[in-house]
Design a protein around this nucleic acid. Structure first.
Lengths: 249, 249
DNA sequence: TTCTGACCTTGATCGAGATCAAGCAAATAG
DNA sequence: CTATTTGCTTGATCTCGATCAAGGTCAGAA
């Protein structure tokens, strides 16, 4: 059986947010939900802006409403590795931890629906269903991280690029509620540099591999940031793992 | 503040297990704990034996009592990447998921204290403290996975080897309750092949980098499976990241 | 308009780690 | 006791992706 779609019907629907909050399910106690709804606030960040610095104290938790944010770790000499990619409806921040372990950076303009940490944590303590929901989300993130480890450790540059395109296509489709199939078209929400940080490559290699996939006809580059996939299965083949990447339930 | 030691005082102490169970804390309801204790059983696996096949249905959950087990993902053409390393007191299996997403393999002789999945899951549902404990453990695993991603994506072969030695030394010390310092001596619980799967390298490169670290005097190889570290700080330096790898609380 | 800087592409060359190959030591089997 | 296997090391060579370098395009500023 396939993984549940990213936006389940039972996720909390804010009055004003255009997304459903992955972290908060409709089975939470209504009075608590109402309280949460009352204390939420919105904040936007410009492209490139750092939302949280690694090591810094974090005072808020929330969900990405629009835009894309990245989690990354940096070595003292500047080598950087992305370790998480946050799309709309994804949860930001870690309940129960005071200091942030990674930089959180806006990849483009990002809007976040946020709650003060103490308020949210109090709600979590009082709401077992919410705690369970957080556990499930974290387990899914762990699976994604481990899939990513396979990519970083063992895939070729070409396979890495194809895998990233599959991941973006799949998440994009899930957000829009559309089916994945031939003729798929989507925007790349990441610069070449962000892609290289994601994949453990240099920007030059990213660029070359995109050109190579284009030359092979696996993708069509409408412009640098828009991709069309004439044959989705062909792209999956290029990604190396015959599993379609859907997690097993 | 540093991460709590791997074996906290409040973890459940089985009557007969020589370890404390990381997953189960002493704050769980005593009657439920007693019930769990009543249904536990032990099973041992030989070195190299597969404990769980990826894709297979899993019927048990439990803790590693002795030995070392690995989680790994394999590409269709045989390329393999280790994605998890389970030492004594670590939890095996995923509550709430029917099929295993990875192979679990015994790296050497492994003993597991296990519970039937339905029993354990029922206990989890009835015990909020246990659910919270599982969430914390999973978040820690996620942090470890992300640290590992940095290693796989951006570190050199030499840094990878040094990092692995630091990780093994630290976990070994935590298990024995000893301090990490100069003159540290420990056994490698992994073959060169398992190390190469962990680090995304070939066995030849692993062997060469160990030889290189030996030649530089960073480590002393007593024999192929026993390491002595004359200067722990020097080893940390070789690992590349100046953070000591302890997670931030 | 031109200038500037961000972002992307492509070419030439280099080098870290993979691959191919050989050999050694210790454990296990026959 | 010898033969085989498993795990480890080391050498020679190759190759993929990094590095160094140049140029192109486009948006926004002057």
């Amino acid at each position: 059986m396939k993984h549940a779609p990213l936006i389940a019907q039972n996720h909390m629907r804010c009055a004003d947010c255009p997304i459903r909050h992955k972290a908060v399910c409709a089975y939470c106690e209504p009075p608590e939900l109402a309280k949460l709804d009352a204390i939420k606030s919105y904040k936007t960040y410009r492209a490139g802006e750092t939302i949280v610095w690694a090591g810094q104290e974090v005072e808020v938790l929330g969900s990405v409403v629009s835009g894309v944010a990245t989690l990354s770790r940096t070595l003292p000499d500047g080598r950087r590795q992305m370790v998480g990619l946050l799309l709309p409806s994804d949860f930001v921040g870690r309940p129960g931890r005071k200091l942030a372990p990674y930089d959180v950076v806006a990849a483009n303009e990002v809007m976040i629906c946020q709650f003060l940490k103490p308020d949210f944590e109090k709600l979590v303590s009082n709401t077992p269903a919410l705690e369970r929901r957080l556990l499930d989300m974290t387990l899914d993130e762990l699976d994604a991280a481990r899939e990513w480890m396979l990519l970083l450790g063992r895939k070729t540059a070409r396979e890495k690029l194809a895998s990233l395109l599959v991941i973006i296509a799949r998440r994009e489709a899930a957000l829009n509620g559309t089916e994945i199939g031939d003729g798929l078209r989507f925007a790349l929400p990441l610069t070449r540099e962000a892609m290289s940080d994601y994949l453990g490559l240099t920007i030059e290699t990213v660029s070359r591999q995109i050109s190579a996939l284009k030359k092979s006809g696996v993708i069509i580059l409408e412009d640098a940031r828009h991709i069309r996939v004439p044959d989705y299965i062909a792209l999956l083949d290029e990604a190396g793992d015959d599993s379609d990447g859907g997690y097993i339930s």
